[in-house]
Amino acid sequence: MLTKRIIPCLDIKEGRTVKGTNFVDLRDAGDPVELGAFYAENGADELVFLDITATIDNRKTLVELVKQVARQVNIPFTVGGGIGSIEDVSALLNAGADKVSINSSAVRRPGLIDELALQFGSQCIIVAIDTLFVDGIDWVHTHGGRNITPLKTIEWAKEVEQRGAGEILLTSMDTDGTKAGFANQLTAEISSNASIPIIASGGAGTMEDFYDVFTLGKADAGLAASIFHFKEIEINALKNYLAKKGIPMRI
């Protein structure tokens, strides 16, 4: 049976993991390669590396980092942050990334999704959507929720699929950082209308939150950062918990 995926997200700044971690058993918890390999060994189904600085100077650092990760990690991994062109994607895939995630560049120029899907195949193009509920409607936002766009989240999700996105990474800015659970209602609405997988992100605080996002939220994958980094939840324990509750898991 196809399993639901659990995905830790590592935020990268100048080649280092930021936001901190609580892995006393790692030599260097700030080393994304070591942390990624640790997760791969300990139940993660996939990894996402998000370059939060994403400046041109850091591009080369990121490509080098991707090479290091690809040498060490034997599960799929995605790289995102500041990707805006075919050249960017080509460099990251050639360095060993399995997928890339694009966000504000797709909002600025939606045709980029079509171009990337045609050039590299839909399977490696994830479109990340940051969403915030404003005046009764879910709107796409950029810049970590600071900038509202004229795009309605539900419409935009349909559009990115039609343009060739292979998966959608949906982050609710309403729930992100709250640890009060994922945005299940919106996730379910988008997932029900999509034929591509939806990775839900933002709000995970407990194991039950993951159960809810896979059942109520109809998500195909659940992504989180700090609860994994600070070992509030261990991935293997989470997967065992979900499997016992009947969610298909790779154990």
Binding site: M1, L2, T3, R5, D45, S122, A194, I196, P197, D220
Partner: peptide, 11 residues
């Protein structure tokens, strides 16, 4: 009922 493509870990 099922999403196409088939993406993820399966047995």
């Amino acid at each position: 009922t099922l999403k196409i493509p088939h993406v993820g870990w399966n047995s």
